[in-house]
Amino acid sequence: MEFYKSTEAAIISLCFLFLVFLPMEKVFPAKLKQKIIRPSWLLDLCYFFGQYLLWGTLVLWAMNYFRFWLDDIIPTTFRTRVSNQPWWLQAIEVVLLSDFLIYWGHRLQHKVDFLWRFHKVHHSAEHLDWLAAHREHPLDTIYTVGLINLPAFLLGFPLETIAGLIAFRGIWAIYIHSNVRLPIGKLRILIGAPELHHWHHDLERDRGNYANISPIMDVLFGTYVCPDHEPEQFGIKEAFPKHYVGQMLHPMLPKVISNKLYRRKMKKSDE
């Protein structure tokens, strides 16, 4: 029954996202030649359904565990002080701290090889659109979601009070992956834009634009890049499996084994 409900929800979500982003990608395409049914769309569809039907529970469990573990170790006096502040101040603190943490956490994902092993699954997408936004290793998701939520967990801030903002940023995070180029002027600094995130997905691993949604942290820490054209190519330079199971397993295997397996697979396909 649960599986049926999850499947239904996933299909409804897929249809809604299709409806929201497809017209934009058609009318304001960033890459003119990119088609809707582009290479690896089926792989990204697997990621989409994988996240809705399989990995959601895992992430959920991890977050729940993390949250209640933090509840036990955070002194109540600290939370008392925080909650004595006005609501709006707490909201700003949580959003800014969250953006700060995810910015540095994301930079680390690109810097530290161990984290990059998982994060490069997301960057392996060579064609960006709203569907490609869902390409993510579940352990990478746990890391990201954990960091983003850490300030709220620490401060005991009721996130439901900023549900609108969170919902907007959530769907906007999918939008910034879409194949859209629509300049929104200075609003870009506040809410981010696809043209910025596209550069983050450039072939160069350390290209920049690590901020979550708003590029303020990138501006502050000097990693903001925004050329007036699209990157020539998205993806990663490293050899990487092209199928779902391979991409799921690759980061978890020791480097020697995963490279060996991958080479053998490549050799077979060449033959």
């Binding site: 409804i12 979601v145 983003i148 439901e160 949604i213």
Partner: peptide
């Protein structure tokens, strides 16, 4: 329409109860 799941968001977003 979410049917017990919060959908159409991203991991780059915070959790919403």
């Amino acid at each position: 329409i979410i049917i017990d799941q919060e959908m159409m968001s991203s991991s780059k977003s915070m959790m919403i109860p």
